[in-house]
Amino acid sequence: MKMRLTEKGAQRLSISFLLAPALAVIILLFLGGLITGLLRSLNYFPLIGLNDFNFEAYVAIFTDNGFIQSLVLTFHIAFTSTLISCILAVAAALLLRPAFRGKRIVHFFFSLNLTIPHLVGAIGVLYLFQNSGLVSRIMTGLDLISKPADFPAMVFDPWAIGIIIQYVWKEIPFIGVIVLAILLSVGEDYESVARSLGANRWQAFRQVTLPLIMPGVVSASVIVFAFTFGAFEIPYLLGRTFPAALPVLAYQSYTDVDLAARPQAMAMAMVIAFISTLLIMAYMKLSRVYIRE
């Protein structure tokens, strides 16, 4: 018995040694940053003369209507982008699954924009969907609208349509490639079984294929959600100044001339981290219930 414990102990020790380099990076960069941020959000920042712990920054942001609006907007952007990307990515993966002529070329184009930076995508959206953009000009040319200014606002708009378009464009291949890989490894036999047992196409998809690919869809969409909730560049480029998405708001506060706004910026960052964690946990739990059904 004792022997076995020692063996186990040795094994654990060697595992922790092997993990040490990776853990060091995570702890130093991630936890270190998180803790510094947390301390500063609690008004502890000796460098600029803040030494007393308090919750003033949190009180300030949560009583600020602008912050609440930003929070709602950010949630809207992240949720809508993730949902639309997921649905379209699964549909695309299903279409790309069967063998067809030129499959490799189609796959290449499908995953091509994984390599294109978000910034380039944002510029593309600007060129296409601004009031003076390509789409509105073409529609004017075709007499679908009388002048470019009549084109519905899709950039710098209250519904963040431009931001969502950019995220969907970028994330479909990301989720799609993951889902396609899972679909190919699962194979079509489970579906055949379901069809043979009396399920129609939709039932076979809903009852059999979807639950089988769901774990992959969930992991991929959690990553997409967390990214779109916390990313700064796209809402900064394509969003309104007010209400701005949370990361943009946090950045604005952080770069404010008034140093006293720093704790508020940090508090916002903390809120983003906290809410993303919470939402992701809830999302994973929900999808697990969905799979079990």
Binding site: S192, L197, G198, V208, L212
Partner: peptide, 20 residues
């Protein structure tokens, strides 16, 4: 006739029970 309406049910070699 669609597979689900044929009443011909196939049992696969590797069983393929729905794992979840």
């Amino acid at each position: 006739i669609k597979p689900e309406e044929r009443g011909a049910v196939m049992v696969f070699q590797n069983y393929l029970l729905f794992p979840y």
